[in-house]
Amino acid sequence: MSIGLVMDEPNKDDGIVLTEAQKRARRSRSIAIAVSLAVLVVLFYVMTLVKGPMILIRPM
């Protein structure tokens, strides 16, 4: 076995190596989670401004 061939093969110690499609899918999910978290932060911030101290009161 040549050295070049060995270097091209993924090392077993690297664990699971993602394919390009899997990387794209993961990036797409990560962006969606980031956007969702940002929306939640903005929502809580704006609702606190809107309601003021009333934010702590839970009406029926």
């Binding site: 699971i16 993602l18 499609a21 899997q22 794209r24 899918a25 797409s28 999910r29 969606a32």
Partner: peptide, 10 residues
């Protein structure tokens, strides 16, 4: 296997 699901699938 690592997921292939995109944000669109969710």
């Amino acid at each position: 296997q690592p997921s292939l699901a995109s944000a669109g699938d969710y």
